[in-house]
Amino acid sequence: MGAKASKNSHDFDKPGTYVYADESGNSGKDIFSEKSPIYYQGAILSVGEIDNVVGPIIQRYCDENTLERLHGYELGEAIVNRICLDLLKALEDFDWQFHYTAIEKRYMSPTKFVDTVFDCYDNPAVHPFWYTTELFRHTLCILIDDMMEGGGDEAFWQYYLADDVDGLIEICEILLERAPHIFDKRACEVVTDGLQYAIRHPEILTLVSAKGKSAYKKQTPNIVAFSSLLTATHRFCNKFGTSVSEMIHDQSDEFKGTMREYHRMFFGVNYQDDEFGGIPLFKEVEYELGTFKLESSKNSYGLQVADLFLWLVQRDVKDEVLKKTKSLILENSDNYFISRNMSLAIVKARHHQLMQQDITPEQIQAGKELNKQIVANQLRKMKK
Rank of each mutant, 00 (worst) to 15 (best):
A3Q: 15
A3I: 07
A3K: 15
K4T: 12
S6E: 15
P15Y: 01
Y20H: 12
E23F: 09
N26D: 10
G55F: 02
P56L: 02
R60D: 11
N65P: 01
T66L: 11
L67A: 07
E68W: 03
G72I: 04
E74G: 04
V80D: 03
I83V: 02
L88H: 02
K89E: 15
E92W: 00
W96D: 02
I103C: 14
E104Q: 13
K105T: 06
Y107T: 04
K112Q: 11
V114E: 08
T116C: 11
C120D: 10
V126Q: 01
H127V: 02
H127L: 06
T133F: 05
F136C: 06
L143E: 10
L143T: 12
D145F: 01
M148I: 04
D164V: 10
I171V: 15
C172Y: 02
I174P: 00
A179C: 07
H181W: 01
H181K: 10
C188A: 08
T192N: 00
T206F: 13
I223R: 05
R235F: 11
K239A: 11
S243D: 11
I248Q: 05
D253R: 10
F255C: 07
G257L: 07
E261Q: 09
Y271C: 13
G277D: 09
G278T: 00
V285A: 09
T291H: 07
K293T: 05
S300G: 01
Q304D: 05
Q304P: 08
Q314S: 09
R315D: 14
V321T: 12
V321Y: 11
T325R: 06
S333V: 08
N335E: 09
K348M: 07
H351N: 08
L354W: 00
M355V: 02
Q356F: 04
D358F: 01
I359K: 00
K368D: 05
L379A: 09
R380L: 10
R380W: 06
K384F: 03
